[in-house]
């Protein structure tokens, strides 16, 4: 337990040294506040860009507060996810390629402890980025567009965060057995595949973790079709994370050099 804690501190130190703990939250805040600002100033932006047919600008309707907040969270599902996957891809792969994996495993540190330290470090980064980003996005939405229910924002962010954590756990799993770029690519592809399957078969796959972004939008709009619709996606998401985590610690314990 103590060694896992030390390893976690080492991971956080590395994140600080590589400026990840600084630039990723800043990117999340920018992404979050850009949405309400651009929605609010859209007529001015269009006017500045030139040729707008007369009467067009009067047609512009300010989107609702919940809609704007949902779009901000949607940004985290696109750009945010890319950033998180690219930053997590080196977790295990970097140790292996840098030749420090043997050192880690030679220490009195079980692969399970090493994996949990790495996973916790990624969770810290995700929670910090998403928490700051969503809070700033909500603040700007309230200031510029209209009222939001804070409990709905909290619920929606938590649901979205769980989906992001699923994908980050995928990245960790693949990082334990593949080279870093392949790990990032494969986890993003897996996320896209899950999301696509869910849009194709929304009813049979109601329980899938890919339903979480949609549930997060519904939580914001406060029009949940059925109460407790979130139970199964949340449970399956947690199960997926646990599986990825156990798989990652198993694969890292073997520490074979990957061919890809």
């Amino acid at each position: 337990m103590r060694s896992a804690w030390f390893f976690y501190r080492k991971e956080m130190l590395e994140m600080t040294r590589s400026y990840k703990l600084l630039w990723i939250p800043v990117v999340f805040i920018i992404l979050g506040i850009m949405q309400p600002i651009s929605a609010y100033y859209m007529p001015e932006i269009l006017k500045m860009s030139g040729d707008v047919p007369p009467g067009m600008l009067e047609l512009y309707k300010l989107p609702g507060a919940a809609e704007t907040m949902a779009k901000s969270l949607g940004q985290y599902g696109m750009v945010g996810l890319l950033v998180l996957a690219l930053s997590a891809m080196n977790s295990f792969a970097g140790e292996r390629e840098g030749g420090t994996a043997e050192l880690v495993l030679a220490r009195p540190l079980t692969p399970l402890a090493a994996a949990s330290a790495k996973w916790l470090a990624q969770l810290t980064l995700l929670a910090l980025s998403l928490g700051l980003g969503a809070a700033c996005a909500a603040y700007y939405t309230v200031r510029l567009i209209g009222g939001l229910s804070w409990s709905a924002v909290l619920e929606a962010s938590a649901l979205y965060g769980l989906w992001l954590l699923c994908v980050v756990s995928f990245t960790l799993l693949f990082s334990a057995c593949l080279r870093a770029p392949a790990a990032a690519f494969l986890s993003l592809a897996a996320a896209a595949g899950l999301a696509l399957l869910h849009t194709l078969l929304p009813r049979p796959l109601r329980w899938s973790p890919a339903a979480l972004p949609q549930l997060s939008v519904e939580a914001l709009m406060q029009q949940g079709a059925t109460a407790y619709a979130w139970v199964f996606p949340v449970l399956s998401g947690i199960a997926l994370i646990v599986l990825c985590f156990l798989g990652a610690s198993l694969l890292f314990g073997r520490n074979k050099l990957p061919r890809f």
Binding site: V26, I29, I33, R143
Partner: peptide, 17 residues
């Protein structure tokens, strides 16, 4: 008062980079 934080953050990001 609402716009300058956006530019400040972008500047901060460039400085970190």
């Amino acid at each position: 008062s609402l716009l300058w934080p956006l530019f400040a953050l972008q500047g901060l990001l460039a400085v970190i980079g």
